[in-house]
């Protein structure tokens, strides 16, 4: 069937095109703290306050949300105060704020809910003085859970925002 072979060739073409086009902002400047190899690729250590590893591990790159909510708990605000401080000090870095939801709820609603959560983090960081143009938001809805069980213990950790640090390209 010529249709099928044509599809195959086109799909193969897509695959190649996509390889040169990374999933987020792309390329070597992105520090993907979720991927297994990401932390190892990061410059610095948890002891170096100017390093993304310090941001991720010592300050904390994520905050958690209540069911269906995007309001920031006092604990979340404390974490975000640290994030804001770090971003104000380390101006060579930008951040992408990911919003996530648990698996309860439809795909579409969770995308919108994740956007709300990421936005409330962005607004808080901006209110603490971080320039809005250094922050981008993205929602993954329920597409990227970190905990896999189907009960509240896992859901609570999946209802999160993650602030992903990336070095500003040097040009």
């Amino acid at each position: 069937m010529t249709y099928l072979s044509k599809t195959f060739i086109l799909c193969a073409g897509l695959a190649l095109a996509a390889c040169s086009n990374a999933d987020r902002f792309g390329d070597s400047n992105t520090v993907d703290l979720n991927s297994s190899g990401g932390a190892g690729a990061m410059a610095g250590t948890a002891q170096d306050p100017a390093s993304p590893v310090y941001f991720q591990q010592t300050i904390g790159d994520r905050v958690l949300f209540q069911v269906d909510q995007s309001t920031l708990t006092p604990q979340a605000q404390a974490t975000l105060d640290g994030q804001a401080q770090w971003l104000l000090t380390n101006t060579d870095y930008n951040a992408v704020i990911e919003g996530h939801a648990d698996e309860q709820g439809t795909r579409e609603y969770n995308l919108a809910l994740g956007a709300r959560r990421a936005n409330s983090v962005q607004e808080y960081l901006v209110s603490k003085g971080v320039a809005g143009n250094r922050l981008k938001v993205i929602s993954y809805g329920k597409e990227r859970p970190i905990e896999l069980c189907s009960n509240e213990a896992c859901y609570a950790k999946n209802r999160r925002s993650v602030t992903v640090i990336s070095a500003i390209p040097s040009s």
């Binding site: 099928l4 599809t7 799909c11 897509l14 695959a15 999933d23 995308l111 993954y140 597409e143």
Partner: peptide, 11 residues
């Protein structure tokens, strides 16, 4: 048959 590869999330 497949219309995209798996490099990006599609919904």
């Amino acid at each position: 048959s497949y219309l995209t590869d798996s490099a990006s999330i599609v919904l």
